[in-house]
């Protein structure tokens, strides 16, 4: 999304959606708001409703059971909107890829504006990637691969 930088200005409000994560990405996302990272200092917040959000931050390989809820949550975010794929599962499905119940990530199907690799990505890496997104706007590039 080219207008990412202007769209989000100096704050970024995201709604988290878990689509089959093992919980480690959730844990790191929560640590983003602990004293060591304090993402709110950077203007970043996880908001309770997609209606309050600039976009979604999605974890997990994209389970079949979550497909409808994910689509409806995304639709509830006003346009223009951003999608961040958080973690190896969300980016490419990782070990849970394929099969009858899980997809190959949500990065490609949702045309994610930012993909953050890692299993899980550390809070500092997540913060850095989100700050860059705010600074430079969404470029579709992947954040630095880790681990």
């Amino acid at each position: 999304m080219e207008s990412g930088g202007r769209l989000i200005g100096r704050s970024l409000a995201l709604r988290h959606v878990d689509c089959g994560s093992c919980n480690a990405c959730e844990s790191e996302l929560a640590m983003l708001f602990s004293p060591d990272y304090d993402a709110q200092h950077s203007g970043i917040d996880m908001v309770a409703s997609p209606r309050h959000a600039d976009g979604l931050i999605v974890t997990g390989p994209g389970t079949r059971q979550m497909a409808d809820a994910l689509a409806r949550t995304l639709e509830a975010v006003g346009e223009p909107r951003l999608v961040v794929a958080l973690g190896d599962c969300a980016v490419f499905g990782h070990v849970h890829k394929g099969g009858y119940a899980a997809g190959s990530g949500i990065g490609a199907p949702l045309a994610a504006d930012l993909e953050i690799l890692g299993c899980p990505p550390a809070p500092g890496e997540i913060l850095q990637a989100l700050r860059r997104l705010m600074r430079e706007g969404a470029s579709g590039e992947r954040a630095a691969a880790t681990k």
Partner: peptide, 21 residues
């Protein structure tokens, strides 16, 4: 909602692959 089909995915895997899942 988090059902990924882990037990089906594990079938036929080597030990190294399996423990990573």
């Amino acid at each position: 909602w988090n059902h990924r089909g882990v037990e089906a995915n594990l079938q036929g895997r080597s030990l190294d692959e399996a423990i990573r899942i």
